[in-house]
Simulated scan of single mutants.
Amino acid sequence: MNHQAQTIRHLCIFILVALSCGWIGVWVDSLTGETTGDFSNTSNGTKGMGIFIAAPVLTWLVLRTFMGDGWRDAGLRPLIKKNVRWYGVATLIYPVVIAISLLIGELFGWLKVQIHWTNYFAGFGIFVLAEFVKNFFEESSWRGYLTARLLSLKLKDIWLYLIVGVVWCSWHWPYFFYFVKPEQLFALFPYDKITFCVLALVNCTLWTVMYTELFHLTGSIWPAVWMHIIEDTTIYSLMYDKHIFIETGKDILISPVSGIIPCLLYLGVGLWLRKIRITREVQ
């Protein structure tokens, strides 16, 4: 079997595991009677949730260690000295886009911002530690394996973004509908299920552009891990602790999680990173 055929076969294995592991976890929880909780709170974790988060990582570990994929493109080295400015960019992307979105929302009267800064930062330390572990598992799978292996096939960028975005989003479905409490999900996504599914798919695909390009530029998963941590801590604190109040019906436009305006801004960031990467490649 030639190298490209092997890569495609291994990608199919990885994608199949990613798309099925959460549903297997749901089934396991139904057998054991364990109840769902907030995935960011490990004390509420279930065996099914453990399968959901660990299976993609275990799969790429096997594929890289025992089935010939190797480690060269895994992006596990931080490469901080080489990528200092990209770590800085990763730190700023979400806060800047969220600040712009909130400003637009305030100007148009779509939301009110009432941030109590002491409360906002109170739980950051513990939350960041939990998010560090969770986001290493995610980014080592979606960027360090799926994106890296697709890059080796030299696909057109649009197909790369679409494949990673759809798989990344689809992996989340069991989490959204079973592993997280309905009231927690509604606090972030106050939509009917069909609207939610469409917006989640669009959101993941648009975000994929900037995550892919950041990984492509740096050759490391760690700027993406750090950016994902910033995203989770910033957005979840705003929404769960009710520091912002969005007018009914305006979430679809301005919500920091899934609003059209923030998503377009994130796409703009991704395309800007892509332009920098292409410029580098032709020099």
Rank of each mutant, 00 (worst) to 15 (best):
Y145R: 10
T208V: 08
E139I: 04
H243Y: 12
I254S: 01
E213Y: 14
C204E: 11
Y236W: 06
A148N: 07
I235D: 00
L238W: 03
S30T: 11
G22R: 02
W60A: 07
I104R: 13
A187S: 14
I24K: 01
M1E: 13
L160T: 07
N41R: 06
L273S: 06
G144F: 08
H3V: 05
Y191A: 11
C204H: 13
L150G: 08
A187P: 09
K156L: 05
T59L: 05
V89G: 06
V202P: 04
G165A: 05
L63G: 02
I261G: 06
T7A: 00
E34S: 11
L58M: 14
G48C: 10
L271S: 11
G25S: 04
C204T: 15
W86M: 09
V167Y: 02
N41T: 12
S140P: 02
E183I: 09
Y211Q: 14
L206N: 09
A224R: 00
T7D: 06
I100H: 11
V257K: 02
H243I: 03
V180M: 12
N203Y: 15
L31P: 00
G109I: 12
F132I: 15
W60G: 02
G45Y: 04
K134I: 14
S141F: 10
A90H: 06
P223K: 11
Q114A: 10
F137N: 00
G259S: 09
N135S: 06
I229Y: 07
S101T: 15
V198Q: 05
